[in-house]
Amino acid sequence: MPFLLHGHHPAHDQSGGWRRVLARPQGGAIAVLTAAFLIPLGLAGCSLSEDITPPPGLVQPAAATASFATELPPTAGPSATPEPVEPPTSIDLQAGRAKFLDHCAACHGELGLGDGELAAQLSNPPAAIGSTSLGRSAVPLEWFRMITVGNMPRFMPPFGNALTATERWNVTYFALSLSQGATDLQAAGALFETRCAECHGPEGAGDGAQVGAVKVPLRDLRQPQTLVERSAQDIFIVISEGNAQGMPGLGTTLSVDERWSLVSYVRGLSYTPGSAVAI
């Protein structure tokens, strides 16, 4: 049988302890209370089993994103947009490495594996930007923006004021190079000469002997801007499958490793001669 709390103060029992005084309600009282509770429900057409309707205007929290690229904070206006968005005419990896070691390695680690000396102190682990899975899917322009504006919720500081635009581009491409692993650039260069240079030209300028067979003018691969919005994975797919503009696919004639070496070589065409870094 249910009990109703009777009174607001405890009473002292005969044994000296304190107890609440509970009184058994009379049958008439139960009937009155039941009617008083159920009648309004019936008039309102409600049911105790129905879900509670959320208040108007309730906004459910958005699902969290996890990828490195989508964690870019939104820009607040023109002043928050990283400038310039175009990279310089050539990339100096040696200079990028020096700035990376000064400003990034303490968290990301010298090889970009997220194991820097400060990494253990962060509640959000630094991104392993040197890992193959992350580096090959990264877009240079997006990483440049991340370096410029930062991502403070993940303890990534902005470097838009600490580094010049050219320095940030150099750091961007050095960070990207960490995921390409050891590449025999001499062997990759030989592959490029025999399989690509007849259209793209010996230096990637788009001036090869067979360039007339291509449906559209070929862009200069020596300019970082040409592939600034293309990840290594994007380049690998085009090398493997070709495209509708006349680029033949090499997926059936070159091994996976050979195609990845071509990706590294093509990206490296935009680096300042002699600035390649041994990882």
Rank of each mutant, 00 (worst) to 15 (best):
residue 96 G to N: 01
residue 99 K to E: 05
residue 102 D to L: 15
residue 105 A to Q: 07
residue 105 A to D: 12
residue 106 A to L: 11
residue 108 H to V: 01
residue 108 H to G: 02
residue 110 E to I: 03
residue 110 E to V: 12
residue 113 L to A: 14
residue 114 G to A: 08
residue 114 G to N: 09
residue 115 D to M: 09
residue 116 G to S: 15
residue 120 A to H: 11
residue 121 Q to G: 03
residue 121 Q to C: 04
residue 124 N to C: 09
residue 129 I to N: 14
residue 131 S to A: 14
residue 131 S to P: 10
residue 132 T to G: 10
residue 135 G to D: 14
residue 140 P to K: 01
residue 140 P to C: 14
residue 142 E to A: 15
residue 145 R to W: 10
residue 146 M to P: 04
residue 146 M to G: 13
residue 147 I to L: 09
residue 148 T to K: 02
residue 150 G to S: 03
residue 152 M to E: 09
residue 156 M to W: 07
residue 161 N to H: 12
residue 162 A to G: 05
residue 165 A to N: 10
residue 167 E to C: 00
residue 170 N to M: 02
residue 171 V to L: 11
residue 174 F to C: 03
residue 178 L to F: 10
residue 179 S to M: 04
residue 179 S to R: 01
residue 180 Q to P: 01
residue 180 Q to D: 12
residue 181 G to V: 15
residue 181 G to H: 08
residue 183 T to Y: 13
residue 183 T to L: 13
residue 184 D to Y: 12
residue 185 L to A: 11
residue 185 L to G: 11
residue 188 A to P: 06
residue 190 A to W: 10
residue 191 L to I: 06
residue 192 F to K: 02
residue 193 E to A: 14
residue 194 T to E: 05
residue 195 R to L: 11
residue 195 R to E: 05
residue 199 C to W: 02
residue 200 H to K: 05
residue 201 G to Y: 08
residue 201 G to E: 03
